[in-house]
């Protein structure tokens, strides 16, 4: 699938925003403290920027409001409805902290649960597609939820939490290390599913119904140049690039944050705080790579009409 930057930015940024909002909504951070106020603004801005960038890839964004109507069947519609609805408790909580130095735990729980449901809906847009077997698994929403939680938690304590070196900072770091390990373990399960998924139960033989005659190969494409289908659905990256990018993604998203966080526990508080910030930025960069690969490596059934596994579709 074509890795559209607008969709990658949408899923990564809004995911991190919802993760951060969840941490705050569960009552962390003194509502009267300036960093907490900034954290609320950051969460709302990340969510809003993510949602706005998702409308960038629409052909007719001026009609985007219509997308709130079909929540009965469409995960995209559910995602839109939930995103807007979640703004209500989050904005109230942010306003309570910023203007009134107060917090309400009940509203917090409601907002926090809504954050998670929204991220789940985002993931289900992809996980519900039978045409992309790599995405069509329970592991997809699990990965989206965990990455949102981990990136939100790291954002919180690295930028807005307690001073590095304090006891509570240590607890947050340990918690994040656990999150990192769990997240990447689940991502590993997803990768295992994805690498075996291929075209699922479909093949060029089932796509053409000609399998009883022999093995099917594409002789001629219907069109000489690219079209919407080949650009959007038959996107391929060279194996070489895929492997290198997977490595970069794992380094930035898993190894580096983990190592930096561990070191931050052992060094002077000032340096530790700095390392925690670097670790968070590294995680977010790794997430962009991870999300890029999520799209770019996904095979869509329509590829079977364009040669399937054979390299008849020009790479990139």
């Amino acid at each position: 699938m074509h890795p559209a930057l607008s969709v990658i930015a949408f899923t990564v940024l809004s995911g991190a925003g919802y993760g951060l909002a969840l941490v705050l909504a569960l009552g962390h951070g003194n509502p009267a403290h300036l960093p907490t106020k900034f954290a609320w603004v950051t969460a709302l801005v990340l969510i809003a920027v993510g949602l706005m960038s998702s409308t960038l890839h629409l052909g007719n964004p001026q009609r985007a409001w219509r997308a709130f109507s079909q929540w009965k069947t469409s995960w995209l519609s559910r995602e839109g409805c939930m995103a807007v609805a979640t703004f209500v408790p989050l904005t109230i909580l942010a306003a309570m902290s910023i203007l009134g130095d107060t917090f309400n735990l009940l509203l917090g729980y409601i907002g926090g649960i809504m954050c998670m449901i929204t991220v789940y809906c985002t993931a289900m847009i992809y996980a519900s597609l039978r045409t992309v077997p790599q995405w069509h698994t329970r592991w997809t929403p699990a990965v989206y939820l965990l990455f949102a939680l981990t990136s939100g938690t790291m954002l919180y304590f690295a930028f807005f939490g307690r001073e590095a070196g304090s006891d509570s900072n240590r607890i947050w770091v340990w918690l994040t290390l656990v999150f990192l390990v769990v997240t990447w373990a689940v991502k590993f399960m997803w990768l295992r599913h994805a690498s075996a998924a291929g075209y699922g139960a479909s093949s060029m033989e089932s796509a053409t119904g000609l399998g009883n005659l022999g093995r099917v190969r594409l002789l001629e494409r219907p069109h000489a140049m690219e079209n919407y289908l080949t650009r959007e659905m038959a996107f391929r990256i060279a194996r070489k690039h895929r492997e290198r990018l997977s490595l970069i993604g794992a380094m930035l998203g898993a190894v580096l944050p983990f190592v930096l966080l561990v070191i931050s526990l052992m060094v002077a508080p000032a340096l530790g705080g700095f390392l925690q910030v670097v670790a968070t930025i590294s995680l977010l960069a790794g997430l962009f790579v991870e999300r890029w690969l999520f799209f770019a490596t996904a095979k869509h059934a329509v590829g079977l009409y364009y040669g399937g596994e054979e390299k008849l579709v020009p790479a990139e």
């Binding site: 007719n60 964004p61 995209l76 847009i125 597609l129 039978r130 045409t131 796509a207 919407y228 059934a301």
Partner: peptide, 18 residues
């Protein structure tokens, strides 16, 4: 139609083009 393209993603046959 807002042109989100999700329907084309869901069609296994490549029957929809933006």
């Amino acid at each position: 139609c807002i042109g989100c393209g999700l329907c084309a993603w869901s069609c296994a046959y490549g029957a929809r083009e933006m």
